[in-house]
Nucleic acid binder design. Sequence first.
DNA 1: CTTTTTTTGGTGGTCTGACCACCATTGACC
DNA 2: GGTCAATGGTGGTCAGACCACCAAAAAAAG
Lengths: 209, 209
Amino acid sequence: MSGTSEKVYVEIIKKIKTIIEEDDLQAGDKLPSERELTDRLHVGRSSVREALRSLELLGLIETRRGEGTFIKPATGHRLVEVLASFILHDQTARQDLLETKSIIIRDCIELAVQRVRPEDIEFLNGMIREIEQSEQERDLQQQIHRFQEAVIKLCNNHLLYRLWVELSDYGLSVHQHSFLLHSGECSQIVEHLKNGDSKNVIQLMSQNM
Amino acid sequence: MSGTSEKVYVEIIKKIKTIIEEDDLQAGDKLPSERELTDRLHVGRSSVREALRSLELLGLIETRRGEGTFIKPATGHRLVEVLASFILHDQTARQDLLETKSIIIRDCIELAVQRVRPEDIEFLNGMIREIEQSEQERDLQQQIHRFQEAVIKLCNNHLLYRLWVELSDYGLSVHQHSFLLHSGECSQIVEHLKNGDSKNVIQLMSQNM
DNA sequence: CTTTTTTTGGTGGTCTGACCACCATTGACC
DNA sequence: GGTCAATGGTGGTCAGACCACCAAAAAAAG
C-alpha cells in the first residue's frame, strides 16, 4: 500500500484530528462514539480505543463512562504528570527544562514591555487590588497564579504563552514547590512594566518559577 | 474496593513504572512482553496494550514488532510534537508562529555561541566541505538543512532544540517556502560562531527560516 | 396533566480468543 | 562449517462478549 506502514492507532489519531477539524469541534464537544469510529474508519474497536486512550493520557480528550468522549480544553495535565514521573530521574532533561522555561519567560517579558498598553496596566492593578483583599490562602495562590499568567500573556503571542503554560505545569510536577510572588512583588512588576524595565520584571518573574 | 477507581490502563502504566524502577531498567532495555504483563498484572491484554500505546505516543517507549517493547532515552520531549500537531492548529496565527520561531532561533544561537567547542566548529566545517562538493540539488538541500539543524543543536539544550524542530516543521506545512542558505553563508555562520558574534549568526539563520 | 419510577438503548471499560506479520533462534540439511 | 527452513516468541489487529454506567424515553403513579 501507499505509506500505510503507520500503525493503525496512529492513523486513527490523525483521522480523529481530521474529524475535529472538519466538523469544527470545540472544547467540550462530543466525539463520535468508539463504535461509530470503528464503523466509519473500518478498524477494530480495540485500535480505536488505543488511539483514544493515548489522547486521553495526553489530556486532549476526556471520557465519561456511559456518556461519551469529549474534547478537553487544551491544557496538558496528566500528560505532564506522566512525562514527569517517567523522566524525573533524568538530570539533563530537568536542566533543559529549567533553562528553557527561564528563556521563554525572558522572551515573553521582553515582548510584553514593548506591547503593554495602559489598559493592561489598569487590569493588572485591578488584580493586585483583589489579591490584597483576598483572605483565603487558597484563593490567594490562585489569584497570584492568574496574575503571573496575565503578565506572560502580555507578550501578545499566544503560541509563546502556551509554551510557557506547558513548561510551567511540567516543572511543577517535577519538583512541586510552589513558591509564589507576594502582592508587593506583583506591584513592583507592574511598576517595572510601566517603565519598560524588562530586566527587573524578568528577575522577579524568574526567581521562583 | 480500595480506591481502585482509576482505570485499569492507568494502573498498568503505574505498574510498568514500578517494574522499571525495581528492575532498574535503563534506556534501551526490554520491557516484559505484553503477554507476560497480562499474566503478571492479572489484566486483559487489551488493557496492557492501551497502556503501552499511550506510553509509546508519549515517546517513552518504542515497540518493535517481532522483538518487543523497549525503553527510549528520556530525551523525547514528545510533548512538543503532539502539542504542535494537535493544538497548534487551533487558530495559531501565522504571525505568532513566525515570531516564536525567530525568538527560539535567537535563543538557541545565543546559547550556542557560549557553548560551542572547537570540535563543533571542526564538525561544521566538515559539513560545509561536503556541501561544496555536493552535486545533486536534492542532496544539497538536505545537507544544508542538516547544517542548520546542527547549528541550532549547539545550544546544547535538547528541549529547546526540539521546539525549533517542531516550529520549523509546522511552519513548513503552513507555507512551504524552502529557501535555504547557500554554502557561502554557511561558512560565514561558522566564522561568526567562532568569534562569538551571535548577532550575525542570528541574522543569517533567521533570514530565510 | 404533572410527577415519579421503570425501562431501554447507547456509551465506555474490560476480558478473551483468534489470527496475522515479523524477527531471532534453532536445528536439520547439504 | 555454512546455508536455509522450521519454530516459537513478539507485537498488531480484529471480533465478540460481558459489565457498569448514564441519560432519555416510556410507563406508572399521583
